[in-house]
């Protein structure tokens, strides 16, 4: 537990580091990190045009939906894919300097949030151009993001360790995430599934998606959304705690 305490206390270092990472990645480009915004924005626009046509709705109707879906999904998958390799990627640091492993996780999580903040610009643009009925539900998105932060941390610690030990797991996760993109309502709506709506009901990532996407669109997430997210969070934290207590000592030797 010592490591987690030290790590959480070092959040300022992690934030500074995450910001440096983002800045350095685009240092020699003219518009810098705005490339994140542009590339995601282009994808959203392209998919928006195609799928609004396919589903027979208007662009103004569909674009806010797919935009919030895509940027939220981007954050979720970033946290999963990067969380899996967080310790593997920090091998040198973890075995050669006195650095809390949890600091590495925080650095990774903050980096994902910085990317998300860049993508929020696309949402603001969509709000300005197409108009979204923001409501009293909208601030709830902050609560949703806070839950993402918590989830990103425990997931990174837990799966960072598992993936350091079993090097096939990151590949499995990446593939699962890719598959889940299609079975999660991001560019289509749950009601389109008709009687097969259970595909979304049993998909925990759908519920995670909803607690941020729905508020951004001005709607309240359902009780089921909050319930599933709360259950996963509690279960995840307990599992991480047990796993950390038993196996953290071995992490350095798995790297």
């Amino acid at each position: 537990m010592q490591d987690i305490r030290t790590g959480l206390r070092s959040w300022r270092l992690a934030l500074h580091w995450a910001w440096m990472d983002t800045k350095l990645k685009y240092r020699r480009s003219v518009i810098g990190p705005l490339w994140i915004t542009i590339s995601v924005g282009a994808t959203i626009l392209g998919m928006g045009v195609v799928f609004s046509t396919l589903w027979g709705t208007t662009l103004g109707d569909f674009l806010p939906y797919i935009c919030t879906g895509m940027i939220t999904w981007g954050l979720i998958t970033g946290l999963i894919n990067e969380g899996a390799v967080v310790f593997i990627n920090s091998e040198n640091l973890l075995t050669q300097i006195n650095l809390s492993a949890t600091t590495c996780v925080l650095r990774m999580v903050f980096r994902q949030f910085i990317i998300f903040m860049h993508n929020i610009l696309i949402f603001l643009l969509v709000v300005l151009v197409f108009g979204v009925d923001l409501s009293s539900a909208t601030p709830l998105a902050a609560l949703g993001l806070l839950l993402y932060l918590v989830t990103g941390i425990w997931f990174g610690i837990l799966f960072g360790m598992i993936c350091a030990r079993f090097r096939d797991v990151p590949q499995v996760l990446t593939n699962l995430v890719q598959l889940t993109f299609f079975i999660t309502p991001i560019f289509w709506k749950p009601e389109m599934l008709g009687e097969r709506v259970f595909i979304t009901t049993y998909n925990p990532l759908f519920h995670f998606l909803e607690i941020v996407r729905q508020p951004l669109l001005g709607h309240y997430p359902s009780a089921a959304n909050w319930g599933v997210v709360a259950a996963v969070t509690v279960l995840g934290i307990i599992t991480t705690w047990l796993f950390h207590r038993h196996f953290f000592k071995r992490l350095k030797y798995w790297l």
Binding site: L94, T95, Q96, I97, N98, K249, K252, Y253
Partner: peptide
């Protein structure tokens, strides 16, 4: 050395 530094438990 790594044990002395606390890096390796």
């Amino acid at each position: 050395l790594r044990v002395l530094s606390g890096i390796y438990p």
